[in-house]
């Protein structure tokens, strides 16, 4: 199944085709990336992928899509990782690798610049 572009020139949030969610609110997306919500509504575990904090796409994703600052998320992840209280998202080195990881991982969520069209990857709409 090919992904459907919401915004061919901006950032799109992508999920594995096993995810049945088609829209997500900005605050729900924040909770997923802050590792506060770790399962989809059908109880499938969420696997969160990110690009490196300083990559332009990540900066744009944080500021324009979630309307927060990248360091806020990084701080939450560091606290979780180095206190043993939780796990951080998985960092991938490029948008191509992000697409491939989301395509092959059930429950995965990520983001890319542009359409994000790929087999087993769906684009979801961010509201709010």
């Amino acid at each position: 199944m090919l992904g459907i572009s919401q915004n061919a020139f901006g950032i799109n949030v992508i999920v594995n085709s096993s995810v049945t969610v088609h829209t997500i609110s900005r605050s729900e997306l924040w909770r997923v990336y802050a590792m506060r919500t770790t399962v989809w509504p059908d109880k499938q575990p969420i696997v969160v992928y990110v690009l490196s904090t300083k990559s332009p796409t990540n900066q744009q994703f944080c500021k324009e899509v979630m309307k927060i600052f990248p360091y806020q998320l990084e701080r939450i992840w560091n606290k979780l990782t180095f206190s043993g209280m939780g796990v951080a998202p998985i960092v991938v080195s490029s948008e191509q690798k992000m697409l491939e990881a989301v395509a092959k991982t059930p429950g995965a969520i990520g983001y890319v610049q542009g359409s994000g069209a790929m087999k087993n990857v769906n684009t979801i709409k961010v509201e709010g």
């Binding site: 770790t38 606290k79 043993g84 209280m85 939780g86």
Partner: peptide
Amino acid sequence: DANWQVNMYLGRFKNNHWLYSNT
């Protein structure tokens, strides 16, 4: 779920009570 997250930690845990206690 979408609103709640409840976790229990057993063993040797790190405190999470002050602003910078766990880092």
